[in-house]
């Protein structure tokens, strides 16, 4: 079985995380800080995906237009009607819309795939922070009104 790209990326991230944890000592607190996408990255990602959906929607529009024109002249039995210039124009319209639908679907599909690849490639890395309690001292517990306050000193 061939692993998917996303699975590979996840595995690499996990290995990196584990490697960083090796440096943590017993008693340290390890925190994973997930990476955040920059606004520019989100904008670009949304733009590519949005353009993909728009192109796909245009493709669908022309697809239905082509089907409509095509259905208007299609015939599987004697119609009793003459072949007119209007019929020829419908065939031409069906052909034109068919070409546009193919272009729309192709561009839309390519943009959506591109957006997915860009999403994976620009996935921000998460960071690992290690918190080391000072002197390995014990945390302090102070009673307060209606509860208790947990305290201590750490460095990181």
């Amino acid at each position: 079985m061939i692993p998917r790209l996303s699975q590979l990326v996840t595995a690499i991230c996990l290995l990196g995380l584990l490697a960083s944890r090796v440096h943590a000592e017993k008693g340290d607190i390890v925190i994973d800080i997930p990476g955040e996408r920059s606004p520019e990255n989100k904008l670009l990602l949304g733009g590519i995906a949005g353009a993909g959906f728009l192109a796909g929607a245009l493709g669908a529009y022309f697809h239905f237009d082509s089907r409509s024109a095509s259905d208007d002249v299609a015939a599987d039995s004697y119609t009793g009607q003459a072949w007119t210039r209007e019929d020829e124009e419908l065939v031409d319209r069906a052909d034109r819309s068919r070409s546009r639908a193919i272009i729309g679907y192709s561009v839309g599909g390519a943009l959506l795939v591109g957006a997915a690849i860009y999403y994976i490639v620009t996935e921000p890395k998460s960071e690992t922070a290690v918190i080391r309690p000072h002197g390995r001292g014990s945390p302090t517990v102070s009673p307060t009104e209606g509860g208790a306050l947990l305290g201590g000193m750490w460095s990181f």
Binding site: S70, D71, V73, A75, A82, W83, A94, R98
Partner: peptide, 14 residues
């Protein structure tokens, strides 16, 4: 999307 028109379906036009 390409119309399917069987032979004999239409009368000749102009």
């Amino acid at each position: 999307c390409t119309p399917d028109i069987v032979a004999g379906a239409y009368l000749c036009g102009p």
